[in-house]
Amino acid sequence: MKTIITIIALLVGLTGNAQDAKTILQKVDDNMSSKNRVFESTMVIHGKRNSRTITSRSYSEGEKQSFTEYLSPAREQGTKMLKVNDQLWIYSPSTDRTIQISGHMLRQSVMGSDLSYEDMMEDRKLTEVYEPKVTGEETIEGRKAYVLELTALVSDLAYHKRKMWIDTERFVPVKEELYAKSGQLLKQTTLSDVQQIQGRWFPTSIVFKDMLKDGKGTEFKMTNIKFNQDIPAYIFTKAALKK
């Protein structure tokens, strides 16, 4: 019995290898991206002393435009963030100010999390900027996954190399590792709670972790995910920030 499973696994593995890495990535892209999406999220940031939970509602259109409104805690409530192409603005209701974030500020962490503004700015599809290669197959959290190695095709990416574990059935990433040019592991992302939403599989829970830093990382949970909604165009304008 065992041998049979092994053989099957091996066959699947082989077919996996045979399956074009690009196709796999394409399938992931197809699965994950939509015309637009709306979701609410909870971000848990573990600081050195305490943990904070931030909730927000986000709208995104393709990869180029996104709009996030923070709902809680009270201090953050009403703060909005708008990204259009390569520009980022943050609006604060308490001061009624819109501040543009640029230059080295983009490299700062967002609200003390393990994500930088820049991480949130990356808007090119993986298939456009990375050359994927299937390097094997592993089982992660009981799910079989292709292991993909992505090498940068363009030079202006924060991470030269990525390693992705893609669920062989659902075509969602379950784990990702981000590497420096030298091959040093820098960050790790774990994706879980994969749910079927509007006919597509989607991981609703993500943990980001900066591997060079001590700490528990940042947890990101999405709820109320809706794809292909009617999002009014004005949402992605600076005027919407002040609404």
């Binding site: 904070r52 931030i54 604060s92 609200m111 003390g112």
Partner: peptide, 9 residues
């Protein structure tokens, strides 16, 4: 950023 890492405006 604030002491807790939240945005400071």
């Amino acid at each position: 950023s604030t002491m807790n890492g939240a945005m400071m405006f």
